[in-house]
Amino acid sequence: MAVLRLEHVSKRYGVGDQTVQAVRDVTLSIDAGEFVAIVGPSGSGKSTLMHLMGLLDVPSTGHVLVDNVEASSLRDKDLARLRNEKIGFVFQNFNLLPRTSAVENVALPLFYAGYRTQPALAKAREALARVGIDPHLRGHHHPNQLSGGQQQRVAIARAIVNQPRVVLADEPTGNLDSQATDDILGLFASLNQEGTTIVLVTHEDYVARHARRIVSVRDGLIASDEAVVHSAGPQAGVEA
């Protein structure tokens, strides 16, 4: 069952008096439980594709369906609700609120969903524990008191706290050293094994190889879409 569907989606930008065709007539379907990497060089349109999937941007033509709901005709309020309930975002630069504790950062989507403070914080602590951050030890730390890898774990906890249908990660390891990169990729793999659908945008082959399907994008078109054969599990790539 498709949790995300793009149907003949195109996106054009006007830059000055030129028009840039970032995405050209892309049709793509992502099923529940998948771990997909979208790869491509910079400027290939992979980030635009991700913004369209996350309902952060609207297509020029075509349809975006999240959990079989057609999003292009929705109003702001309903779009916000879909983003809140169905989609979890992970960003390259973490995007945690400064001067705000890890627990409160994680609870933010729950507050927008209308949760009361205590139940929201309790759920946030559970999510933190799931990503390997001890909520009692580090829950009250502010982002600047955490390492990059820890900050990204907090951000992932925030992405999954609402049990979304799909987690969209945009270059999640772009700002991390190789040790933290492996930690985060391992976390994604384990979340995926528990059933979370993950779409990961990256320009690094090494990162992409952790996924189970790789969609490569070039000049706004899907150049290839193939399953990854893991001969010796995800860790095989480390030695290569």
Binding site: G54, L56, D76, K77, A80, R81, R83, N84, E85, F89, F91, N95, L97, L108, P109, Y112, A113, R158, N162
Partner: peptide, 14 residues
């Protein structure tokens, strides 16, 4: 921060 809040489900109203 506004972009982030919107991605997490903030409506225009909030």
């Amino acid at each position: 921060e506004i972009g982030l809040r919107k991605s997490l489900g903030a409506t225009q109203g909030s």
